[in-house]
């Protein structure tokens, strides 16, 4: 990033913070609600973005995140409603994600199916399967993770509410972001992953098993999306409804790109997109402004278009060179 862009980012952050505190002094209740909503929406997006990032860094396009979310949310919800255990539900969600990730690898890496088609297969299958079984299970809410206050941190005005009194899965997500960031840029696994996404041939000549690592990574990445699905069903909403992922698996891809395929970047981007979502919800809840709800509902999508279009300002990032290509050994 050039220094000009960096300065631009800092200015943006400063303006945002000033605005937030300004609003907070005028209307603390609503400001807190919007920011809490921001973090809630961002958690799902960042998990999807991490899934996409791990895949893309390895050279695989994953547009099946949407389906992975949905299917994982469904199985997480179902297992919890059968067993009454939230934890088992989360594990079921992760397991579903892993299986779908492996399926993506099997199609895209193993069978060398076009990667976009492989992802689409997952999305279509997810909608079909969950709708089909949904009718019969017809469950109501099964309860959800409730906020845990982190001691005195939770008492800090604004920030305490927004970050330190969240339910368990949000905390886990924040830990995961840090972990994956370190792993991607500092660990042996991360270095090899970046290598196979950029130049699989070179990785091959130094003895890295390209196909095996791609399988592994796509599967692992699915686990993150699966965790995201579980979060959606068992923490954010506490129920399952048809098509509840609502396009956020695709939004996660925009978050990933905007976040320059790094976990920290993705979280910043996710918070930004989450803010748009939260703002929209807040507008819809209280009708101080007389804007038709349809227009308000467009907000996150308009933000997506504008932001993706402007993302060049933040330093355009090249795609990994081998993205979307199958690797063939002679």
């Amino acid at each position: 990033m050039t220094s000009r862009r960096r300065a631009f980012l800092w200015v943006l952050v400063a303006v945002l913070i000033t605005l937030i505190f300004g609003f907070y002094s005028i209307n603390s209740g609503q400001t807190t609600a919007v920011l809490a909503g921001t973090v809630r929406a961002a958690t799902l997006l960042v998990l999807g973005a991490i899934c996409g990032m791990i895949c893309e860094r390895s050279g695989i396009v994953n547009i099946g995140i949407e389906g992975q979310f949905l299917m994982a949310a469904f199985s997480a919800f179902t297992v919890t409603s059968l067993t009454g255990s939230l934890a088992l539900g989360v594990f079921a969600g992760i397991a579903t994600g892993l299986v779908l990730g492996w399926l993506l690898a099997a199609m895209a890496v193993g069978l060398k199916v076009d990667q976009i088609i492989a992802g689409t297969v997952i999305n279509i299958a997810a909608v079909g399967l969950t709708s089909f079984f949904y009718d019969r299970s017809r469950s109501l809410g099964v309860g959800k993770y409730s906020p845990i206050e982190l001691g005195s941190l939770a008492d800090i005005p604004l920030i305490g509410r927004v970050f330190f009194s969240r339910p368990l899965l949000t905390y886990i997500t924040i830990c995961l972001i840090v972990l994956v960031h370190i792993a991607m840029f500092r660990s042996v696994w991360g270095m090899r992953t970046r290598a196979i996404g950029e130049h699989p041939g070179a990785a091959d000549t130094v003895g890295i098993r390209v196909l095996r690592l791609r399988y592994f990574n796509a599967t692992l990445a699915g686990g993150f999306a699966g965790f995201g699905g579980a979060y959606l069903a068992l923490e954010a909403v506490g129920a399952f409804s048809r098509n509840m992922s609502g396009g956020r698996g695709f939004l996660a891809l925009a978050v990933m790109i905007f976040g320059r395929r790094s976990p920290f970047g993705a979280y910043a981007a996710a918070l930004f997109f989450g803010f748009a979502t939260a703002l929209q919800n807040q507008f819809q809840l209280n009708s101080t402004f007389d804007i038709p709800t349809q227009f308000v509902g467009m907000l996150p999508y308009v933000v997506t278009i504008v932001v993706v279009a402007l993302s060049g300002l933040f330093g355009s990032m090249r795609d990994p060179a081998a993205l979307g290509q199958t690797y063939e050994k002679s």
Partner: peptide, 12 residues
């Protein structure tokens, strides 16, 4: 070092 990285606690 790619492929034969010196390691410390799993990190390069």
């Amino acid at each position: 070092v790619l492929g034969a990285e010196p390691k410390k606690l799993g990190l390069v």
